[in-house]
């Protein structure tokens, strides 16, 4: 019994990660998915257009505009120029908003952005 319980504990310890951004979004579905680096800064966009940012360690905070995303990204890169960014956007968000966020990240000289996605299923997942 104790052995099994220990195995379970080890499993949970290894897979443990604290979710910094609890925004509920319907992620886009892709066939290709790569592991996103840990401690990457997160920018999330809900389908209603609400944006939140997180530095990857503390909980996310809402931001009002793309300008705030830009200043947040510049701030992040000032401490770590190699900081990775994760874009967690709802798949129903109009591209206009995603475009503005990516543009803000580009202006802040972010080098790598990861687009968070769900696994595409064979039947297309109803999409």
């Amino acid at each position: 019994m104790a052995d099994i319980v220990f195995l379970l504990i080890i499993f949970f310890v290894l897979t443990f990660n604290v979710e910094v951004d609890k925004t509920m979004v319907d992620l886009p579905r892709t066939n290709l998915r790569f592991e996103v680096p840990k401690k990457a800064a997160t920018v999330s966009i809900t389908d209603s257009g609400q944006m939140r940012v997180s530095d990857g360690e503390s909980a996310s905070t809402p931001v009002a505009s793309v300008q705030d995303v830009l200043s947040f990204a510049s701030e992040m890169l000032a401490t770590d120029p190699e900081k990775d960014f994760v874009l967690k956007a709802d798949r129903n968000v109009p591209y206009r908003e995603v475009d503005q966020v990516i543009d803000a990240l580009k202006q802040a000289k972010v080098t790598a952005v990861y687009l968070l996605s769900e696994q595409e299923t064979v039947e297309g997942g109803g999409q």
């Binding site: 949970f12 790569f34 202006q107 687009l115």
Partner: peptide, 23 residues
């Protein structure tokens, strides 16, 4: 175990990388 189960969220940690070309 209960602690780790409750605090562990199998959050989405996978996605497509998107290299931004140097401006």
């Amino acid at each position: 175990i209960i602690f780790f189960m409750v605090t562990n969220t199998f959050s989405a940690t996978r996605g497509l990388d998107f290299a931004i070309p140097k401006e």
